[in-house]
Design a protein around this nucleic acid. Structure first.
Lengths: 301, 301
DNA sequence: CTAATAGTGTCTTTTAGACAATATTAA
DNA sequence: TTAATATTGTCTAAAAGACACTATTAG
């Protein structure tokens, strides 16, 4: 039925499709870039004390131009016949050997100048993994791959109230600056990201800009910031943080992960009440810890 | 400094960029498609009663192949030099004449077969507008443009618990079915969308599938479902719904909008407490309503 | 006067915050 | 015994749910 409808040139859909030339239009390349997050433990000298947790991200040192020698998110171009998610999974597997992990599309960045080679959009993904036993491998284009610890903090928050002359209303502009610091051994990468929220009576607009950047390739500082905000935003109303945990974990470990994501301390009793319905207790306990053993839990499915 | 680093072929970054051939790779087309939502009032025969509100979306009737004669989201291909957001804004302006409205990127759909013409990714956006005084205009490729009322309800929710043999753990699969019905005058478009959430100890996966579809072009039923879920999800922890309101509104009108988005009635007193800090009262009141006048409010910026 | 909505008061329930008390282990 | 973490209890404060009462208007 539908196929028999003819357009103004008298073509059926099948005829139209046969005559369609995709090559007539200039098209962008599309890449999938991945922010792979994990939580790792710092060394602890005191055998009794719990090791501190650090939120980490996997970066690769670029072995090819452009941005040769700088650090970048793992990623690659989407191939014909593939979804962006499949590209992301392929990269993830190459880099970490992991297969079934939490994966979420973040945002598609499409600034035409974001890649000096050509017009490249980046469909970005966030993966959350338990990194115990994962040795990052450098892919084809990469010299090295390594886990970088993350520090991402607000350094400035400023709100401006303006009369909006174009309409008779008001306008408020809230400018927030975040400092992103990534560290691996003696390598230290830094960037300053500005988040600007503009409100008028008619709309609300949110922009992220990279103000400065030392050692990160492309606009990847912005993608990382975006991923961190998504992670923070989802932590307290989903069980997303569980994907950073091993199969069995103590509630204190889980709380540490929440704390390291939210970058603030939480109250123990309230935390346990809040996540109580998301976990199942096992019969196992930690051992040889130098203090009272702790019950191990799993994620409730 | 950085520019002087040479790669394994002995090229500097500048030399590499001059030699880079983007044409060597097959690339997708990228379109921006828009779910433009608004709230409209139904006719009310009783002069005293408040008119009911309906959540609506703007659709265009396709005037060209493929899917000629079916209804689609407004959208278009991203042009060189443009961001996807600029494409979306351009389409919005063409279709509604509106300029400064709430706009949010939803998701990038990249199934290689989603468009019969060629490889086309869709970077989708959601816009929220106050439609009073907006007459939708059909663009180049469109025969007509019209507001369709939306009904989107869960018709089936089913959870399956399985032993996962690959690991020693469990797997739960929750399958939800939603019926989407869009109506404009005597046109009625329907689709059934399945949302499947699969959980194992290792990951959580979320998929949307179109099970049936009558009258909607491409995979647009899925994009609409995605937009509706985003809208619902954000309503109670942001002031996003205010972008569907005129400059001044009564709290009952605002509550109606919340109710129509969430598809459930809310308690008046609790609602007023909750949104109280998001509004500013004006000195104006509604008039000639056949009942007690209502104070008008604006969004607090 | 009446039928409608507007707006507020208050009691209850639930959730979150704060902090203290008790329990248990390896060295 | 001690220094650490584990776990639970309880009081308080804040937020959400439920429902009823009063206020005000056009016709």
């Amino acid at each position: 039925m539908k196929k028999e409808i003819r357009d103004k040139n008298g073509l059926t859909e099948a005829e139209f499709l046969r005559s369609y030339k995709a090559e007539d239009y200039v098209r962008p390349s599309v890449a999938a870039d991945m922010a792979i997050f994990t939580v790792q433990e710092a060394e602890e000298e005191n055998y009794r004390k719990l090791p501190e947790k650090k939120l980490c991200i996997l970066l690769i040192e670029r072995g090819v131009h452009p941005y040769l020698g700088t650090w970048a998110l793992p990623g690659g171009f989407v191939r014909p016949g593939e979804t962006t998610e499949e590209t992301a999974k392929r990269e993830l597997k190459e880099e970490t050997g992991l297969d079934h992990v939490y994966l979420e599309q973040l945002y598609t960045f499409s600034d035409p100048d974001r890649d000096p080679r050509t017009w490249v959009m980046s469909c970005s993904y966030m993966a959350l993994i338990d990194s115990s036993g994962v040795k990052p491998k450098a892919g084809d284009d990469a010299a090295k791959a390594a886990w970088f610890s993350i520090s991402y903090g607000l350094t400035d928050d400023h709100t401006e109230y303006r009369k909006n002359h174009r309409y008779d209303g008001m306008k408020t502009i809230r400018t927030m600056r975040y400092e992103l610091v990534l560290e691996h051994e003696d390598i230290r990468l830094t960037a300053v990201i500005e988040k600007k929220v503009t409100k008028t009576e008619y709309d609300t607009k949110e922009e992220y800009r990279i103000l400065s950047n030392d050692g990160l390739a492309f606009d990847h500082a912005r993608i990382i910031a975006y991923g961190l905000e998504r992670l923070r935003g989802k932590v307290d109303y989903t069980d997303i943080a569980f994907h950073l945990m091993p199969l069995q974990f103590t509630l204190t470990q889980l709380q540490q992960v929440y704390e390291v994501i939210l970058d603030k301390p939480l109250l123990k009793a309230a935390f346990r009440r809040k996540i109580g319905h998301l976990v199942i207790e096992t019969d196992s306990f930690t051992e040889n810890a130098g203090h009272r053993p702790s019950r191990l839990y799993r994620r409730k499915l």
